[in-house]
Amino acid sequence: MDIVIIDYGAGNIQSLRFAFERLGYSPELSADPTRIARADRVVFPGVGEASSAMAKLRHSGLDRLIPELQQPLLGICLGMQLMCRHSQEGDTEGLGIFDTDVLRFPDNLKVPQIGWNRLNHLKSPIFKGVEEGAFVYLVHSYFAPLCPDTAGVCDYGFPYSAALVRANFYGLQFHPEKSSKAGARMLQNFIELPDQ
């Protein structure tokens, strides 16, 4: 299984790499579109600020490549948000894969949301064997509202999309690599998805 983690300079990807290694896989880190295009599975991480991350994607042509990919692709945290239409963070266009915008949590909540929350309304093979209400670890200030692509829901003052799925594209707002056994199961499920 050839797994590539897109390494475009947006944050800590070591822990993600280690999580796959704990499952017995050796993902490669790459920002090279040709290399990414021929992987069996592509992981699209990201932490930090949306508009500068988008600028980095554009700089390397990844903004055009990612929406064209046919193999299963997993966006995590900011990666998931960049796969949406638009983000309020830095008022930036996204990759337009998921049919929703990304908004900032309102000021009556503590922002960022940091910690463990329950994941409900699971609706994707990536959650096979994961219990309804499983705890996942999140750190984020912006969120995707509920939409037709919603495949998992967390509640922080109100319900929002903790997971988005469309065709071969999977997005998780939480960090599966830091979500204990439930998160490890999701990464394993992602690897075991049928090839498109």
């Binding site: 800590n12 070591q14 490890a184």
Partner: peptide, 25 residues
């Protein structure tokens, strides 16, 4: 497989860069 924070004597962008690149959350 849970998050962790590292502190103690961190005084520069380079210090933080090194810790995050080694896998600190």
């Amino acid at each position: 497989d849970i998050p962790f924070t590292v502190g103690g004597g961190i005084s520069s962008v380079a210090d933080v860069d090194l810790l995050l690149h080694n896998g600190a959350d």
